[in-house]
């Protein structure tokens, strides 16, 4: 008797299978989400209580080691989480394979660039 297969006929013909990246993507989206909870809450409270100052106050605020560290972690985890999220949205809505690849590459490059720019800027203020 033939072994029962869970694969669809179309799946068999294409023979592509899974790229084995799904679990890691899913897990990293959760991991970054869990990390973002305390980071976002801290940042909102810290920003709100520092509100209303000028440039000098803002620089002093970002030079505090805790604020700077939370900001770096928030930007790192946030951009990672947003990139993973944007990937899911693009894979859901862009059905044309060429355009999908183009969109994925563009979003990942842009997110990496923004992350680098903002992390560098935080460091340059915090260490000045």
């Amino acid at each position: 008797m033939e072994k029962t297969s869970m694969r669809s006929p179309l799946g068999k013909v294409r023979g592509l299978g899974s790229a084995r990246k799904g679990v890691s993507h899913w897990w990293l989206q959760r991991l970054t989400a869990m990390g973002l909870i305390p980071l976002v809450i801290y940042m909102v409270i810290s920003l709100v209580s520092a509100m209303g100052g000028d440039y000098i106050n803002a620089v002093a605020w970002l030079q505090s080691p805790i604020n700077a560290t939370v900001m770096l972690l928030l930007l790192g985890a946030g951009f990672f989480h947003a990139t993973l999220g944007a990937q899911v949205i693009i894979e859901d809505y862009v059905s044309n394979e060429n355009r999908r690849l183009l969109a994925l590459v563009a979003v990942k490059l842009a997110m990496t660039g923004l992350a680098a720019l903002s992390l560098f800027s935080v460091l340059s203020v915090a260490l000045s």
């Binding site: 440039y55 803002a58 970002l62 930007l75 946030g78 947003a82 949205i89 720019l117 800027s121």
Partner: peptide, 27 residues
């Protein structure tokens, strides 16, 4: 909201870059 936050991160980056660019641009 996830998509809006991803777009809005541009504004956050702008604010941080402004802070790193000096008093005049920050004002």
């Amino acid at each position: 909201t996830g998509g809006a936050l991803a777009m809005g991160s541009l504004l956050v980056v702008w604010w941080i870059v402004a802070l790193a660019s000096g008093a005049e641009y920050y004002a």
